[in-house]
């Protein structure tokens, strides 16, 4: 066994793979695009190398001495699609023994019901889903050429260091302005704890796992989004949640949608000017704070749809063929998350 290169190692899942492998004595190398986001990884004396997936030179150098690659890098169209093409082409060229490609159940688009690995994508997902579908098509191309790739499709990955599903919901619950959504929140919340995904990745790296296969990676408990909010809220020790009326929130969400787009654009293009305005005008600072808070506490249209979706991604195939067994239930996963949030001082 040589080393396992993890691309996108500064990301939520990539960093967990590196940390978990290093803690378990499994030789691992962290491939990163930029040092600016490597603070979490740098806490450990781990092998970190430059690995911009858009740079073939860096990819070649990063893969030297490795016999397996866990491809977690994700980003815009270029990173997700061209980056995957580059990673797989280099792995093929260098005779890498195994590539585990981290995809997503987003490739199923808005499919509902029981969605197993045989379900064809309906091409109706968001931009992220479309990029993930394009990346999987590249995997298929390389699988047909004999590159030993295993594709994993995790569901909602939560746990310490997750901004999307742990920090942001903690902030919403902590604010006291969040609640359950009645029927609109009774969709299934397909939660998988992050180290369960790491376990699946580790199993997919095993030589005896047949390459060319695709696996859903989900947790074991099937709960609703309302359940998730209630249990997370309890773990935080907050007063019981109110039931919110979903339709005024949906209207507000639609009204805020252009503000969200404009804010993102302004922050990208005019960050310095906004910060200067923030410092100079208390009225502007107050307005920005209110807007930011309102945006953070209002679910987007896509999120509202998600909370109501009756969809489940079964893991029988992963259990049978990979030997995958989720180890962390929702209660324990939330306990870990809350302990981490408290230690980091993120609850305020």
């Amino acid at each position: 066994m040589q080393k396992i290169l993890v691309t996108g190692a500064t990301g939520f899942v990539g960093a967990w793979v590196v940390e978990s492998f290093q803690l378990s004595g499994i030789p691992v190398r962290a491939g990163i695009r930029s040092w600016t986001s490597a603070a979490r990884l740098a806490r450990r004396a781990v092998d970190i190398v430059p690995c911009d997936v858009l740079s073939k030179t860096q990819l070649r150098s990063a893969m030297e001495g490795c016999d397996a690659v866990v491809h977690c890098a994700v980003g815009n169209e270029a990173v997700t699609v061209s980056g995957t093409q580059n990673v797989l082409a280099m792995a093929h060229e260098m005779g890498i023994r195994r590539v585990v490609h981290l995809s997503s159940v987003a490739v199923y688009g808005n499919a509902t019901g029981v969605v197993d690995e045989n379900r064809q994508n309906n091409g109706r997902g968001n931009a992220y889903a479309k990029r993930k579908i394009a990346a999987e098509l590249i995997c298929e191309k390389f699988i047909s050429r004999g590159t030993p790739i295993v594709v994993l499709r995790p569901t909602i990955i939560y746990g310490p260091f997750s901004y999307a599903w742990t920090v942001s919901f903690a902030n919403r619950l902590w604010s006291g302005h969040w609640g359950t959504f009645g029927k609109a929140g009774e969709g299934k919340c397909n939660l998988v704890y992050v180290t369960d995904v790491v376990q699946a990745i580790y199993r997919a790296l095993q030589p005896e796992t047949a390459p060319g296969e695709v696996f859903n990676v989900n947790g074991e408990e099937i709960i609703t989004w309302n359940d998730y909010f209630v249990r997370f809220n309890e773990a935080l020790g907050r007063p019981p949640l109110r039931t919110l009326n979903a339709w005024p929130i949906a209207v507000k969400s639609r009204l805020l949608s252009p503000v969200r787009v404009a804010g993102r654009f302004a922050l990208t293009r005019f960050n310095d000017t906004l910060m200067s305005l923030h410092a100079k005008s208390s009225l502007a600072a107050k307005y920005m704070k209110v807007t930011e808070s309102s945006l953070k506490l209002t679910p987007t249209n896509d999120q509202l749809k998600l909370y109501g979706m009756d969809v489940h991604y079964p893991i029988e195939k992963a259990c049978k063929e990979l030997g995958y067994r989720p180890q962390v239930g929702v209660t324990q996963g939330l306990e870990f998350g809350v302990a981490w949030l408290r230690q980091h001082g993120l609850l305020y």
């Binding site: 803690l23 580790y202 180890q327 962390v328 302990a339 981490w340």
Partner: peptide
């Protein structure tokens, strides 16, 4: 505890 008590890390070890 999210490192020390994680059953997956115990499993990997």
């Amino acid at each position: 505890p999210w490192y020390d008590n994680d059953p997956n890390l115990a499993l990997l070890r």
